[in-house]
């Protein structure tokens, strides 16, 4: 669960500008494992993105006469206890993972983490101190326990809020689609996933500020905004990408654990965590291994894909 900090690669900072990205891509393309990982990620995320089109059944569609079946022509990966198609449920679970990872990485890691890291590093002084102290408080909280607690406490409130939105606007189906639980999980995870990013970005910005070209720009009277946009951001863009790839896996893993504990995505909205929960237990595994294996293999492939791709990206940026 702990956010694995991406190590700033050694060759970092030697690269600058747009063309460097194509260089990194060139290097990445030559790595077979990276490409396979990329394909795996695209396939799983694609299945999630187009689940409503691709899935043979809906994730709620039951057939009580055909519960707990094995692999068949109708149900390629079998069915669960209620006769719901496991393949379809896995695809919709991938959609859940896609939504949560994208949202948390965007907000928690990209916006909050980078924003606060930049601010702390660039402004320094009390702003830096305040942000870093808050970060320290968050990193001394037992993350999983807090996430469980926050979700258990917040979700009823969030559901009520979403329901009142529903009642006062033409929007419908927000609550029943599990939207509220997505919001809760997303908020709770964002709260914890900015710290690691912010620290790394801050450290990098601190280093950058000592560099001649930034000092020169500042000496020449460039506005702060200009310095940040023109000089700082391009120089930390690699780090940002690395950080995202490192965060994706742990966000997906956290969502898994939360839903497994029953405080994450709420049924009937499907999630890998809930599917795993149904299939866990040695006896269940013995009798119906596909209940565990279908979500288990999918999520493992995804997490492995993230890890391998992140590694390769790290190497590629470092110039290896």
């Amino acid at each position: 669960m702990a956010t694995q900090a991406a190590q700033a690669p050694a060759g970092f900072g030697a690269l600058e500008g747009r063309s460097e990205w194509s260089l990194v891509w060139e290097r990445l393309r030559r790595k077979k494992l990276a490409m396979i990982s990329l394909v795996v990620i695209i396939v799983i995320y694609g299945a999630g993105l187009f689940a409503s089109v691709l899935a043979p059944y809906s994730y709620t569609e039951q057939n009580l006469d055909r519960g707990l079946e094995g692999i068949s022509a109708d149900h390629w990966l079998g069915t669960d206890r209620l006769g719901r198609d496991l393949l379809s449920r896995a695809m919709y679970s991938a959609r859940t993972t896609l939504i949560i990872t994208a949202a948390v990485v965007l907000s928690g890691s990209l916006l909050l983490g980078n924003g606060l890291g930049l601010l702390a590093g660039y402004r320094g002084g009390w702003v830096d101190n305040a942000i870093m102290r808050v970060g320290e408080v968050f990193s001394s909280l037992p993350g999983l326990l807090m996430l469980i607690l926050i979700n258990a406490s917040l979700s009823p409130r969030v559901v009520d809020a979403v329901r009142s939105i529903e009642e006062n606007t033409p929007l419908t189906g927000l609550v029943s689609s599990g939207f509220a639980s997505y919001i809760t999980v997303f908020l709770a995870l964002s709260l914890f996933f900015w710290v690691g990013t912010a620290r790394i970005i801050r450290a990098q910005v601190l280093q950058l500020r000592e560099r001649e070209f930034i000092m020169a720009a500042e000496a020449l009277g460039a506005s702060q905004r200009r310095v940040i946009i023109r000089h700082v951001l391009p120089n930390i863009s690699f780090l940002v990408v690395l950080q995202i790839s490192a965060t994706l896996g742990s966000v997906a893993g956290s969502e898994l654990v939360l839903s497994w504990f029953g405080v994450g995505i709420q049924p009937p909205a499907p999630s890998f965590g809930a599917m795993l929960f149904e299939g866990s237990g040695a006896r269940t595994f013995q009798a119906h291994p596909n209940l565990l294996l279908v979500p288990g293999v999918a999520i493992t492939m995804l997490l492995l894909g993230f890890a391998l791709l992140g590694d390769a990206l790290n190497d590629a940026i470092a110039g290896r």
Binding site: T60, Q62, W260, F261, G262, P267, P268, A274
Partner: peptide
């Protein structure tokens, strides 16, 4: 609900209310 399993018969009820009566009832754990 402490997980997905607790809801399993309720999920079956929800499906029957949907198919037999055309009613969409939400579940909340």
């Amino acid at each position: 609900g402490g997980g997905a399993e607790a809801a399993i018969d309720t999920q079956a009820f929800l499906e029957q209310w949907r198919t037999e009566l055309g009613l969409e009832i939400e579940i909340r754990q």
